[in-house]
């Protein structure tokens, strides 16, 4: 059996030391060593985006990232968003999480952590993305349930609210004709 490696990670703002097999991926360390099961394993090989986490603010696929390569970087998982938001003086959950919650942007929820982190990375860099820019930024995240429209709307809601604007209304209605 391969040996264990002691890893020093900066995870959700905290320093974490953990011993894990040296060839383990970041996803394995998160899920199996640290019990952080919010990052999901959907396809095992970087096709689906369910394991997306932030590394120095960039979305990366934790299932394709060696845990050892994450040392010295700032890692943020879905579990860290709300605590980091509070630590920064905010209340409740991160506004992106809140927008996804209210917009019906999830059904089974399995793709959600990855979607939210990809959206978070986008909005941190580009506070006023166009619909095409949102599609581009989230194109590595698959969702099998929603058909995506409500996810796009959630990102637009989060972006608009962060700018202090009234978000666009949902594009649907009850037909009373």
């Amino acid at each position: 059996m391969p040996g264990l490696r002691s890893l020093n990670l900066t995870l959700n703002g905290d320093l974490v030391q953990v011993a894990a097999p040296e060839h383990w991926t970041l996803l394995e360390v998160l899920r199996y060593s640290l019990g952080l099961t919010g990052s999901k394993q959907g396809c095992d090989k970087g096709d689906c985006g369910a394991c997306t986490v932030l590394m120095d603010g960039e979305p990366v696929l934790a299932c394709l990232t060696l845990a050892a390569a994450a040392e010295g970087k700032q890692i943020v998982t879905i579990e860290g968003l709300a605590p980091l938001h509070k630590r920064a003086g905010g209340s409740g959950v991160d506004p992106v999480q809140d927008a996804f919650d209210r917009s019906g942007a999830l059904q089974c929820g399995f793709c959600q952590p990855g979607m939210i982190l990809s959206a978070k990375a986008l909005l941190d860099k580009n506070p006023k993305p166009t619909r095409d820019e949102i599609k581009q930024a989230l194109s590595g995240n698959l969702c099998r349930c929603t058909g995506y429209t409500q996810i796009l709307e959630a990102v637009e809601v989060a972006a608009a609210e962060a700018r202090g604007e009234v978000p666009p209304g949902p594009r649907w209605r009850r037909f009373e004709g």
């Binding site: 998982t77 879905i78 996804f100």
Partner: peptide, 12 residues
């Protein structure tokens, strides 16, 4: 919203 939406978005 979905009854588990809050748990979904926080990863819990």
């Amino acid at each position: 919203a979905h009854e588990s939406a809050c748990d979904h978005v926080t990863g819990s």
